[in-house]
Design a protein around this nucleic acid. Structure first.
Lengths: 258, 258
DNA sequence: CAAACGATAAATCTCGAGAAAAAGGATTGA
DNA sequence: TCAATCCTTTTTCTCGAGATTTATCGTTTG
């Protein structure tokens, strides 16, 4: 099943929980392909096509797609099937701002309620992330994936002492969304940020229980990614209207004249 | 399709959007039954049973259940089918606190960006809610439903000028969750609150663009419902352990001894 | 009395085929 | 060149039946 905070299985570290059903397996593989960009934003998801690729029945794949709507990585409308959720700069701005709100609140609660053991977990996750950052090479896929996983774990551990399941749920949702955008910026990042320095400050402030400073650092940390995306050519982000189908164009016309 | 803010069809006022597919129809009917308590919290949802009641195929019902996981009204695990999401006092406390955070932020953004037309819409929704409150009789179901719908609309309209789709999405999720609890408190409410007075103050502060005061009123307004639930006998809220299956009891024993 | 084991019953999960709907293409007319 | 209207092809949606897994019950054992 999914690792969302609201669902029972709970935490998802680096160790992958193996799916108990074909639907879950397809769900995880699809989600990975969407986040990694193998399935492009806005792309049509044809069941007949995908069921062969993922080697499951049609109904099974449909259920997996329904599950992906939970993460807002797939959208569906009426009788027109499924699409990968589109991306846009304004959407990422929204995600970023909302993520700042949620994640800061989560961090505050976590700092307020975290035990000494929590501090230890934070330090451990930070250390492992630092190691990954030392040998991080943006051009090597495996190196990126390792960093991505440990970065995710670090941020999760930071807010793991937050008692609110709903806050954690929203945090995971938004983090997952922003992962898609971060992939884009990492491929062609013109401004190499000193992410490690940001993580150092974030870790320090957190274990020092300085909630205000930690949130300030975290806020800037999150917004930096937005700036990186902003400096990218819009063609990478906005969907290409030229690739719309004839019917979609006709529909757009109708909507305009109404 | 669903009326969640992230999905395309957008706003959901009192006018119901008729479903275009059987899955959507079943989804809406199931959701209504869960929120209204016809399907009780924690209850097992057997596909073979329900497919007859809702008059759809097994696969169709399964897809509807997957969709309901999006709203966290249904939970599923491994190969053990679906259950109505359980309720608890601590869960409602979490929902309430998170809702305060989200809805206040939404209200702030809405007040900051709302136009004069928005003010008009707020006044209109408030007026209709007031009328419903005048003739509100807690014992009459239709009266309650009318109030419930207009109350929802009022709160939605208040934050309708909030430009963040994610904030609105989370607000709808949490509102829907709290609806289940509010139903319980309305059936056997020992302390009749003056909800109308709260709405008056909320409306006044909002159109006066006094964000701080509006949020303070809204916060208290939301928390009042929590107090109402707190004063209820716990048996109404916590699930009944006596109704667990034999296996579930055995499983609970195992988990205890570990 | 609690725990363990095995056979029966029930529910879930999965798949492929048929009905309904939408997309694409060709033709006609302005 | 563009819009409107058929017709064909593709895709989605829906259903029921078979394969697996899980729950229940009776019996046995420590």
């Amino acid at each position: 099943m999914s690792e969302t905070a609201l669902r029972k299985d709970g935490h998802d570290g680096e160790a992958a929980v193996e799916p108990k059903t074909l639907v879950e397996a397809a769900y995880h593989r699809l989600r990975k392909d969407i986040i990694e960009g193998n399935l492009k934003p806005g792309q049509k998801l044809r069941v007949e096509h995908l069921k062969n690729h993922y080697d499951v029945g049609a109904g099974t794949l449909r259920e997996a797609l329904q599950l992906l709507m939970t993460d807002a990585l797939v959208v569906a409308q009426g009788q027109r099937g499924f699409n990968v959720a589109p991306i846009s700069l304004s959407d990422f701005e929204d995600i970023t701002r909302t993520r700042v709100l949620i994640e800061c609140e989560a961090l505050r609660q976590s700092i307020a309620r975290g035990t000494d053991e929590w501090e230890g977990t934070v330090m451990a996750a930070f250390h492992r992330l630092s190691r990954a950052e030392e040998r991080l090479d943006w051009k090597v896929g495996s190196s990126r994936e390792e960093w991505e996983a440990r970065n995710k774990t670090f941020h999760e551990v930071l807010i793991s002492a937050c008692p609110s399941r709903w806050i954690r749920h929203f945090q995971q949702l938004l983090y997952r969304q922003s992962e898609r955008y971060r992939r884009i910026s990492m491929h062609t990042s013109p401004i190499p940020r000193d992410v490690h320095a940001e993580h150092v400050k974030l870790c320090e402030a957190s274990v020092a229980r300085d909630a205000d400073r930690a949130c300030a650092v975290l806020t800037e940390h999150i917004i930096r990614t937005l700036d990186a995306i902003r400096s990218l050519p819009p063609s990478l982000i906005e969907g290409d209207p030229a690739k719309l189908t004839k019917v979609a164009r006709a529909r757009a016309r109708v909507l305009e004249t109404e």
